[in-house]
Design a protein around this nucleic acid. Structure first.
Lengths: 144, 144
DNA sequence: CTAAAATAGGATAAAAATGTCCGAATTAAA
DNA sequence: TTTAATTCGGACATTTTTATCCTATTTTAG
């Protein structure tokens, strides 16, 4: 559904959000360990998310990544996905047609629109805070 | 959502089905033209679909691809997708975790399960015949 | 001021997906 | 029986995605 980069990105941001709730700034190394992802690759993804103002990065010793506590509830899963995978998830024909739309639809246009709309709605209505809730109490996980 | 190979595959099979309704066997060349796909790559995909008994291939002059008329209504979109992309679409965590399940779920497990189940249901309940219906009357398209 | 710890970012490498080429095998028709 | 039209299948090429490496830069602490 998403690229590997996007999967790592979501997991990374979720972990950062969890720690940011307690005002802990976390290092790339810690993030990669906690979400079980390749360090350098994760760095690239976080750079991109930083440029898109989803996460704040601080250079230097004692630097790392964090998210404004107030923003954790307002950042939507859709924004993270968009920052990494662009609008590939939403746009584009299920059968790969360039100009598939309601006027000139592919044979499964309507059925795909339904699925995509549901996905879009889900991503847009899921915020970062919800994603952290289960983690604290060991109900949900970010690795394995 | 699907790989390019799978997109071409679905379009190819749909075109073959459309022609098979009138007992026309079609060549690779014709298929690739009608669905606007790379010829040699489409050949590989059709080989695979042929091995999975979704399409019949006939070698030699006047050879080509066709589907038993009776099977067109029973072949499901899900079978085509499975033959090319395997169960990637259904299985696997949205965030890329190896062992994500109801017991040890990722933070968005339930929400993804919902989307995936809907997609699965859609693919399993869509047969090849429905996909050809609009094509004959110019309501749906397989290229552009 | 220096050293250590961290992110930034360019260059490169490896792997996977996509796409091409060509000869072999098969079949129908001339 | 030869030729032409076709699929089959292996090898190769290209592009994209994933991943690594290394140096530069920034910042804190001593």
């Amino acid at each position: 559904m998403f690229s590997k980069a996007c999967e790592y990105g979501i997991r990374a941001i979720t972990y950062i959000a969890l720690q940011s709730l307690e005002r802990r700034r976390v290092s790339l190394k810690e993030i990669a360990e906690e979400i079980d992802s390749p360090v350098a690759f994760t760095a690239k993804i976080l750079q991109q998310l930083s440029k898109n103002n989803i996460v704040d990065s601080v250079k230097g010793s004692a630097g790392g990544f964090q998210i404004d506590k107030e923003r954790i509830e307002t950042i939507k899963l859709s924004e993270i996905v968009y920052a990494i995978d662009g609008n590939n998830v939403y746009v584009g024909c299920g059968l790969g047609l360039k100009k598939c739309n309601a006027n000139k639809p592919c044979p499964v246009h309507d059925k795909f629109v339904k699925i995509r709309d549901d996905l879009k709605l889900m991503l847009e209505s899921t915020n970062l805070y919800e994603m952290t809730v289960g983690l604290e109490v060991g109900l949900t996980y970010l690795k394995r």
